[in-house]
Simulated scan of single mutants.
Amino acid sequence: MSSLRALRPFSTASRALAKTRVPSLGNVPPHDDGHYFSPTRYPAPPPATESQASDVMPSSDAKSGLIKSILYGSDQSKKEQAAAERSYSNQLSRGKYVHEMVVHKVRPDRAPDYVDLVSQVYPRIAATGPLDDSSHKVHLVGSWRTVIGDDLDTYVHIWEYSSFAGFHDVNFHLHNHEPFFLDYIEKVRPMLVSRKSDLMQEFDFWGGTAAPHDLGGIFELRSYNLKAGQLLNWETSWKRGLECRRQVMEPVGAWFNQLGEINTVHHLWQFADLEHRKSCRDKCWHLPGWANTVHETVGLVNRMQSHVLVALPFSPLK
């Protein structure tokens, strides 16, 4: 009897494997806040009896007020805290709109393929709305390629959503109801070195992002990473500075990051060419108030970057 074991036959038939989808907002159905704060899930504790209350808190009103002040903060401190929160959420922001800045670093050898792909897909995304809402919740502000900066094969896209909920709704819809979007994801991944997404809101003092137009020329995206806690000071100084700049150059948009690289501010400007940019910036120094803006803001910044961009053919802003 042979001591060799019978070899297990191998099948040459290929197995059909289901394509794996990486996690995304397409896996997270939109909810209202009640999903997480339902009274049935977190019932209120039963009211304390008199004996229990006396064990926890002295009966003296003075002592009660002192302990509450220590544990929860005084009424004045709570008012000051609420005012500070309103300053950040209401005073800085123009309204409900949320903007997303998407940055793609593209492999140099795939740049033409990338431009062809986004030229076909991005206008289609901008024309897509969630199934349960006929109004569009996303608009493409603009798409650009970096021509001067630290990464030349970098493309910047800015999207506008109706709200944070609108951002979620659109992404959920695209991942679950638009096969062309999943096809785009599969095609674009091999073209990229890296990708980044920040959610931003507009500064109220700026007056809103520019409407679609075709002026030609170049764009300059200036990004400032601020020291923590200095955003309000930045906004106060730039209220005055913008009045100077408006006299000599075309403002396009200004945003501060809410998610992503926080404490970061972006300003977008448009010029005819580099010489026009230089001339406009030189003129600012002769306008009352501009030197003060520079003096007040330079100490608020950790680092800053400047990138010169050119619009892609399908960009609403160009």
Rank of each mutant, 00 (worst) to 15 (best):
I158K: 13
E160H: 01
E160G: 05
S162W: 01
S163L: 00
S163F: 00
S163P: 05
F164Y: 08
A165L: 11
G166K: 04
F167P: 02
F167R: 04
H168V: 08
H168A: 08
D169K: 05
D169L: 08
V170M: 14
N171V: 04
F172A: 13
F172L: 02
H173F: 07
H173Y: 07
H173D: 09
L174S: 09
L174H: 06
H175W: 13
N176I: 13
E178V: 15
E178M: 13
F181V: 08
D183T: 12
Y184A: 02
I185F: 05
I185Y: 02
E186M: 11
E186L: 08
K187W: 12
V188H: 02
V188I: 11
V188D: 05
P190Q: 14
P190T: 10
L192F: 14
R195K: 15
R195Y: 11
S197D: 07
S197L: 05
M200S: 08
E202K: 03
F203P: 09
F203T: 07
F205D: 14
F205T: 12
W206H: 15
W206E: 10
G207H: 13
G207T: 11
G208I: 11
G208F: 10
T209N: 02
A210K: 03
A210C: 00
A210T: 01
A211H: 10
A211Q: 12
H213V: 05
D214L: 04
D214S: 11
L215Q: 01
L215D: 04
L215I: 04
E220N: 04
R222Y: 01
S223F: 03
S223I: 13
S223A: 13
N225A: 09
N225D: 10
K227V: 13
A228G: 13
A228R: 15
G229I: 09
G229S: 08
L231S: 02
L231D: 01
N233E: 11
W234E: 00
E235N: 15
E235F: 05
E235M: 11
E235S: 15
W238S: 00
W238L: 05
G241S: 06
G241M: 03
G241N: 03
G241D: 06
R245M: 15
R245S: 08
V248R: 00
M249V: 05
E250D: 09
E250A: 11
P251L: 01
P251T: 05
W255K: 07
F256H: 15
Q258A: 12
L259W: 07
E261P: 09
E261G: 10
E261K: 14
E261C: 08
N263H: 07
N263M: 01
N263G: 02
V265N: 14
V265P: 12
V265A: 13
